[in-house]
């Protein structure tokens, strides 16, 4: 398969008063054309920052991409000029943000906000852009789009706003869409609708998708491959099915037991992961998950485990797992 995006050894740090926060510290992943991958992890693990790094939208001057390569169709995005990068955003790569209310400009009409990207990338007039906006709103399932384009964001419901965000993201038919927890702030009933919508649209347009979520439960259904992030690093990667059924990192296993699963009997209790993620200013020397891990061995304290293949096409950064032991799998099965 053709590689569309390849992130290599990305390091994005934030320089704060208290020290350097290593939000993303040497992360690599790749997306094939038309493929959906999932970046999974708790809040603060660096998944959003790594996605924003692709678009070079990390809040400056505090945040800075320190090292790495982001190859998009073979071009290193980090080496582009500001102007070249601007032409990439929206046209080739677009993003759906988490908060549809604050992510839409309150004083511009929805139609305007959908059409403005088109106007610049396709060089078309506002009128043509609005016509296209009507078609896009229809596509994302908003009734009476020809009237709705003149509405302002506050006249839309939460779910409709997120549909409008999706319309903005697909406006220029990009090759890659990043969806940053697109369903966190909407009602549970609407979450599934939105995810289905995103899946259908990406399929139809043959767009690759990076789905960022903390919910491993939805990953198996929507993603081809999964990258689990913890404390600024990838700790496990593999096909969605493998990761879901045979987690090779105790953190992934913890994530799985902390969300409801559709394929398990209801009686199984949800088990939260105890403790807090480590301080990213001064990360521990060994495995970052070690202090919260029930299966740690002495080696975990002193040496950071590298990401290694533990099963065919299934990688994990865990000393225990690399010794072919998965005590957590037995427990969850």
């Amino acid at each position: 398969m053709d590689k569309l995006l390849e992130v290599r050894n990305l390091k994005t740090y934030f320089h704060t008063q208290d020290g350097v926060v290593k939000a993303v510290d040497g992360v690599s992943y790749d997306v094939n054309k038309g493929e959906t991958i999932a970046l999974v992890g708790e809040s603060g693990c660096g998944k959003t920052v790594s996605a924003l790094s692709i678009l070079r939208l990390v809040a400056e001057p505090a945040g800075k991409i320190e090292a790495g390569e982001i190859l998009f169709d073979g071009i290193d995005l980090l080496k582009l000029t500001t102007e070249e990068m601007r032409k990439m955003r929206g046209a080739k790569i677009s993003i759906i943000f988490q908060e549809p209310l604050t992510s839409l400009n309150p004083v511009l009409t929805i139609g305007r906000q959908i059409s403005e990207g088109l106007e610049f990338h396709r060089n078309i007039s506002l009128n043509e852009g609005l016509k296209e906006a009507v078609r896009l709103l229809q596509l994302v399932g908003i009734p009476h789009p020809e009237r709705r384009i003149y509405d302002y964001p506050h006249q839309f419901s939460g779910g409709m706003r997120q549909r409008a965000m999706i319309a903005i993201a697909i406006a220029c038919q990009p090759q890659l869409i990043i969806a940053d927890e697109p369903t966190t702030v909407v009602d549970v009933t609407i979450q599934a609708q939105l995810l289905e919508l995103i899946r259908n649209i990406t399929k139809e347009l043959n767009t690759a998708l990076i789905l960022i979520t903390h919910n491993l439960g939805i990953v198996a259904r929507y993603a081809h491959r999964v990258f689990v992030m913890y404390a600024g690093n990838i700790v496990e990667r593999g096909s969605a099915m493998d990761v879901y059924h045979y987690p090779c990192h105790p953190y992934t296993a913890g994530l799985l037991t902390s969300v409801p699963r559709l394929d398990e009997p209801r009686k199984i209790r949800l088990i939260p992961i105890d403790g807090q993620p480590p301080d990213l200013i001064a990360p521990p020397i060994g495995c970052a998950f070690q202090s919260r891990c029930n299966y740690s061995i002495p080696k975990c304290q002193n040496e950071k485990p590298p990401l290694q293949e533990v099963a065919p096409n299934h990688y994990a950064a865990c000393w225990v797992s690399q010794k072919d032991q998965r005590p957590w799998q037995k427990k969850s099965l």
Binding site: L55, L57, M88, G90, I95, F97, E116
Partner: peptide
């Protein structure tokens, strides 16, 4: 929303 505007490549 300013970040959104940037993400559109304006």
């Amino acid at each position: 929303y300013v970040r959104t505007a940037r993400s559109k490549g304006l």
